[in-house]
Design a protein around this nucleic acid. Structure first.
Lengths: 171, 171
DNA sequence: GATCTATTCGTTATAACATAACATCCTATG
DNA sequence: CATAGGATGTTATGTTATAACGAATAGATC
């Protein structure tokens, strides 16, 4: 596996959201929010689950399950695929993370606790991911569904392109 | 994987598009259109490529590469994964078929030759797929992209739910 | 017609992503 | 303490996809 993600040495992510911001705050906030959400719903926010969420928040990029597993293994939290997949299942099924279908990858949810239809903007160079919103039945897709009698239950919207930072570097 | 797709014995598909129609016509038309398109662009519409397109058109459902490979192998057109993947690469890169990211599957394009952003309605029971249209920059996703400076190059829109036939059977 | 070149095809091998199944452990609760 | 449920450790395997390389083929050019 080649490393395509440029690494940053600090907690200040170069292009996230895609705004610069102090990332250590948003990690702490998001972990706290997850903790609250789990407490409220009597969910078991175990060390492995917590650590996987932290990893996703720290990188703030789409990450493959095996990338996450590698980190977990290095930290002694488990070395087999199910360890990563189980944590990711937990996070995605409770709205704390999302799966990016196009990349077979996972990313922390930007709006945990809110019922929403995420839409992703994915940079093809740096793999940064921003989460936007769409409606379940809005726009032309909803029109098409209604016209044919199709009942929409879930929608995946994923855009690939260049984030502001990479677009600038490209030019 | 269990077989969830109800099989029909004739060329009349039960729910396609999702309208009933004489499917043998649309297969012939689509193959002819592909042939014309390849001729116009000096592309090599080889037997394997043609056969894979026919298979996708016949089933008119999302099919995995290995499902297609199985059929090719039975017909003596090749038994190794690259045979199927190469044909699918050709078809998808020239707009004759699309990949359904959510299902790791492939389906024939309903509008070959037209430049378009496909949006799919996928039945979770019978796996039937209808192709609708969306714009590259329309709606809230485009707004979000412009607001952040993200340059959209490609968009994936996939809705999962129940087709009219299965929704009825469900009730 | 011979040679060159580009594309396609056959084949082997392996990479990358994901889950089934089952034993074990931990913990809250009666 | 007993025990039931969820969580974890582990082995094995299933599923999807691609790298790599040589042989075959078809057009282009001399």
């Amino acid at each position: 596996m080649t490393q395509t993600t440029p690494r940053t040495s600090s907690q200040i992510a170069p292009s996230v959201g895609f705004d610069r911001h102090d990332h250590s705050h948003c990690i702490a906030d998001a972990v706290q929010a997850a903790e609250d959400l789990c407490a409220a719903q009597k969910l078991n926010f175990t060390p492995a689950r917590r650590r996987v969420l932290e990893i996703l928040l720290q990188r703030h990029r789409a990450m493959g399950a095996y990338d996450i597993l590698e980190i977990l293994a290095a930290e002694g939290l488990g070395a087999q695929p199910p360890v990563a997949y189980r944590a990711l299942d937990f996070l995605t099924s409770h709205g704390l993370a999302h799966r990016i279908e196009r990349m077979n990858a996972y990313t922390a949810c930007a709006h945990p606790g809110e019922d929403h239809v995420p839409a992703f903007l994915i940079c093809r160079l740096c793999k940064a991911v921003a989460e936007a919103e769409t409606g379940l039945e809005g726009g032309r897709l909803g029109d098409a569904a209604r016209a044919t009698g199709f009942v929409i239950e879930k929608v995946v919207v994923e855009a690939e392109g260049l984030c502001p930072t990479c677009a600038e570097a490209e030019a």
